[in-house]
């Protein structure tokens, strides 16, 4: 199947028909088909060995860009394998923008970029912003920042990968038909995908200009706190968060420097979802 997420078209292949059908359903609001379009990346989910197609089915990824330490995944977690494969192509192979391991959301075509390690709360915060506060979801995993012009952010709004405690937080707020299947016992615990609002997917070709950078720190019971990062701190965080800065050379370095010089960055700590939203709204009010 062919699938477009943001600016990239993926050619996705697998002999496991059920896995492809699940993917088609999860990505039902995204452009699919496009047999005549030139695609950017190939991602294939193949049986680990020929007999593992039928006996305790397990898949391995074969794609344009892979990492050696990739481990086989049980067929019941195929959606995760596809997601890993698709993200890996963007993180390692995409060259048109600098890529940050970050979530993002836009309001009036200006964006907040949410950087943080896995588990820091960036997916949940981006889900809350789009589903509870009217922001346009632009991505929960990778933020694509332009290398020239106004250094705008290109949306890459794939389904939001909710994990563990963040799943009930969003189940309270979003109707069940926007969720993918619940995947238990993955390497990250329980994972469930949440489809962004249809409007956000339909607007995925509309760029947004970064106006605010936040690094969330969700700790249950913590008091809300805002701390401005120095430019040096912001550079070090974003530099580590970038998956392709080295590959891009000077344009990547330049884009990162311009971003941290022109956009204020903050650490935000909060103990509840509502507090997290309030902190982002407060900072947004300040930059407007």
């Amino acid at each position: 199947m062919r699938l477009r997420i943001g600016p990239a078209i993926f050619d996705i292949r697998s002999p496991f028909g059920g896995a492809i059908a699940s993917l088609r359903h999860l990505y039902r609001d995204y452009p699919q088909g496009m047999p005549d379009e030139i695609y950017d990346f190939t991602v294939a989910a193949l049986p680990t060995t020929p007999w593992r197609r039928w006996f305790r089915p397990s898949i391995r990824l074969q794609a344009d860009f892979t990492v050696e330490e990739a481990v086989p995944v049980a067929l019941r977690h195929a959606l995760l394998a596809f997601e890993m494969g698709v993200n890996m192509q963007m993180a390692l192979g995409y060259r048109r923008d600098i890529i940050l391991h970050a979530a993002s959301a836009a309001r009036d075509d200006r964006a907040v970029v949410i950087v943080g390690d896995s588990g820091s709360g960036k997916s949940t915060l981006s889900a809350l912003l789009s589903w509870s506060a009217g922001w346009r979801h632009c991505g929960d995993e990778l933020a694509l920042i332009g290398l020239a012009g106004d250094y705008s952010l290109t949306p890459y709004p794939r389904p939001i990968g909710l994990k563990n405690q963040s799943i009930p937080v969003m189940r309270e707020r979003v109707s069940a038909d926007r969720f993918g299947p619940r995947l238990e016992g993955t390497m990250k615990g329980t994972v469930q995908h949440l489809l962004p609002p249809v409007d956000a997917i339909q607007a995925m070709d509309r760029p947004a200009r970064p106006a605010l950078i936040v690094s969330p720190h969700f700790t249950a019971g913590a008091s809300p706190e805002i701390r401005r990062m120095t430019q040096s701190e912001a550079y070090l965080r974003l530099s580590v968060a970038s998956t392709n800065q080295l590959t891009l050379g000077e344009p990547g370095f330049d884009a990162l420097i311009r971003l941290i010089r022109s956009v204020p960055a903050y650490d935000i700590t909060y103990g509840t979802s509502e507090e997290g939203l309030q902190l982002v709204e407060k900072l947004w009010g300040d930059v407007e």
Partner: peptide, 16 residues
């Protein structure tokens, strides 16, 4: 130069 950090990007090696 940033506020409290100086960076040198080396064009030939691509290293910072």
């Amino acid at each position: 130069k940033l506020d409290d950090l100086s960076l040198v990007f080396h064009r030939l090696s691509g290293e910072t």
